[in-house]
Amino acid sequence: MWQTLLNFFFYSIAAIAAENVLFARALGLSYLGGQPRRIADTLLFGGVFTGMTVLSSGITWAVSNMLGSRPYLNYLRPTAFFAVICLIYLACYFVFGKLGRPRLLEIRRLLGTACSNCALFGTLMLMAVQRFSLAQSLGYGLGTGIGFTAALCLVDEAKHQLKRCAVPSSFRGMPVLFLYLGLVSLAIYGLTGHPLPQ
């Protein structure tokens, strides 16, 4: 029991920091385009994404176990995971629409972006390839969602700060943001203890 809880906790911490889906794996970057958003909007999207990640990580763990080591796994597994994401999306879309509350309708509007995000699918594939247990999958899914939300808030704040800096005109906007992401990615890579090869 304790071992399971520890696994859950450590894998979620790893997914937030060392294996951050945005800085370490460059997934989910499409949400960075455009003007900086309000923190409330970013947190709402992050919450929807975290919910989707946790829910789908549990279901895809079960699906991955059912598939086992069947032949043509490279074709079956991604298709099955995509089907799971679609089913969850459609179920949430229609249930939220039926309930009709304003907050749920707002969440429903963000469901399409959260589900068609490569960060979600990439996380599920990573967990399947590395054969996580249920506790590890749920912890990793939760950590991915929280890490992604934290990374979005960090990048939104960075956009505000970069606007105030004296950046050369050709590099204003996305080019300098890419350079910033590269430096943060390098910092995380170094903090996790990986040395650059000689």
Binding site: A24, R25, A26, P168, S170, F171, M174, P175, V176, L177, F178, L179, L181, G182, L183, S185, L186, Y189
Partner: peptide
């Protein structure tokens, strides 16, 4: 990946 970010930023600029 960090080099990919930096190279992309330089190409964009």
């Amino acid at each position: 990946p960090f080099f990919g970010f930096v190279l992309l930023g330089m190409i964009a600029g």
